[in-house]
Design a protein around this nucleic acid. Structure first.
Lengths: 336, 336
DNA sequence: TTGTATGCGTTATCAA
DNA sequence: TTGATAACGCATACAA
């Protein structure tokens, strides 16, 4: 049964056509010095004429490496995983590495199954993409290759985890509003169960205090990550703290809802109230009316960084601990 | 140099521990009948004790198949590719197949490079995910394995292309509005350069005509796929065709913008004007005020279907032509 | 500089 | 029922 696709051309075919042995052909193609220039040229021409492609399976079998890595994600329909994955895929393919994608759908059995499969495929390493909030069971004990955790934490402090710098992002937002001379700054954000929401809220307090300010409304308004909550919270806020002249929102959807509600209440953005969102999800931020100033997480860069670290680890120079990826302020009309 | 990870356990290790030859161990593990029950049990136990995982590279080398497929996408940050990819990945992993992911970023060189790499990795087939609008150069001539095109067309009519049923989707929307006794139905949609926009607009005309109705405003309003265009078009429409009592929008973002603008103009949704969106992108459709009735493309199912067809093709039963995936009406408050 | 021979881990053939 | 042995395609000591 078709154990070999007839058209497949192997190193043997190349060698035959060039009139040399397989060993010589191999050396020529892999540019090992021990071959005469003329021979090398003959081999390369033969290879080109036959469109020879070395079988990566065979190479991997002998080398013990496959130039492939496993990308593990729990819920990759979430919008955060995508840019990370994209950044990683890009960086990897620049290094001639392939990506084996596995979505575990939050199912531990599925996850273990995927890990076993990937190991059976002899991947050279793992990138684990999380959802920022939860802590992932460390793979380190179960696998013989390096792993890097992105946008999540691992249970093992000796693992390398790359996360977004929530404190830095919140600081960027608040200092921007303060620079605009806003004095009554409020914070509408997502559930307190989210670490990101808690960390950023804490930083909001800190930065305001550094400038002798207090949060308008006294406390952050915790709710959902939705436009609906934004609309609702904005009305609450105007009722309880009508002096508010700036709102830092936990994501762009909330900011969009806030903006809609404020406009409905007759407040002008940014003249009466400046708005800053979070995530720079362009479909919301740039298409809002007015377009939203927001914080970009540099997620794609996060994916790229992960690859860099994974390569270092594969080369025997592993890093460790939690690394924070800086955010970036994107100024649009909502604070212009 | 480290040509083998020391901990790796091979079939030889299992065989030794079970006190049999490698050949016998292989037969026992692969359940080939020609082995005594007791021996088989011994081998399986040894394998379990050593957590033996067969090396898929070696298996693939001898079998000529790898149980891996290549997933090629041009711009996978677009939101349509994601659910398709998710559906495909899910179906594939259910069949113990792995996915090699490649994003070509619309670059032909990159694309060819990826294809060569995937072939060198001996993938058993390809799934090509497009962006619905453009026609993809057929791979068939260049590759020795089957390919299925999803959410795009191929230049070769003999290829199998899976697309969304735009006509059916538009029909669902318009017939829904007609069933609600709306008489003045308008259509606000994306650029005419998009095949989907053209096909749906044509169907809108057809279905209205079937019910002796004409489009409110006379012509579809073609613009961008954005909220901004939705807001703008809604104001245009109210100015030129104030009698409008229903609007079918080309996507959920346009519908969201339309809804915002209508609300600002004092029209109630759905009482004065019913709205239907397209795509069922929940983050927009379900979080709109009011939540949007919309058309779901069943993209995940599209991915699953692609895998089914790819398997058939790999098994020597290829299909051909353009297959349309039916859409689904999702009713929410904007037409309730 | 070139070629021979061996091994990577597995499956399959065929003798024993 | 079992076990040598030969592939699969490639890379590499080592001999020539």
């Amino acid at each position: 049964m078709g154990r070999r696709r007839s058209e497949t051309v192997t190193l043997g075919d190349v060698a035959k056509r060039a009139g040399v042995s397989i060993a010589t052909a191999s050396k020529a193609i892999n540019d090992r010095g021990e071959v005469a220039a003329a021979t090398r040229a003959r081999v390369l021409r033969a290879a080109a004429e036959l469109s020879f492609q070395p079988n990566i399976l065979a190479q991997g079998l002998v080398a013990g490496r496959t130039r492939a890595i496993g990308l593990l994600t729990d819920e990759f329909d979430g919008r955060f995983a995508i840019p990370i994955l994209l950044g990683a895929e890009n960086a990897l393919s620049n290094q001639e590495m392939s990506v084996l994608l596995c979505d575990t759908r939050g199912d531990a059995i599925r996850r273990n199954h995927h890990i076993r499969t990937l190991l059976a495929r002899q991947v050279d390493g793992f990138i684990v993409v999380g959802d920022s909030n939860d802590v992932r069971a460390s793979l380190t004990a179960d696998i013989p290759v390096p792993a890097v955790y992105v946008y999540c934490r691992s249970t093992n402090p000796a693992d390398l985890c790359l996360v977004s710098d929530d404190e830095g992002g919140a600081r960027l937002a608040i200092e921007h509003l303060i620079a605009l001379r806003r004095k009554h700054i409020a914070h509408i954000t997502g559930p307190q169960s989210y670490r990101a929401a808690r960390d950023r809220a804490a930083t909001v307090h800190t930065v305001l205090a550094e400038h002798d300010l207090r949060l308008a409304g006294g406390q952050p308004l915790h709710g959902e990550w939705s436009q609906r909550w934004g609309r609702h919270a904005a009305r609450l806020l105007i009722a309880t703290a009508p002096e508010v002249d700036a709102i830092f929102c936990g994501n762009d959807q909330i900011a969009s809802g806030v903006t809609q509600a404020l406009t409905g209440l007759g407040r002008r953005v940014p003249d009466d109230v400046a708005i800053v969102g979070y995530d720079n999800w362009e479909i919301f931020a740039a298409d809002c009316k007015p377009p939203l100033t927001t914080i970009d997480l540099n997620l794609q860069q996060l994916g790229t960084t992960a690859v860099t670290h994974l390569f270092a680890a594969i080369d025997g120079r592993p890093a460790t601990g939690v690394v924070r990826q800086p955010c970036r302020l994107v100024v649009r009309e909502s604070t212009a």
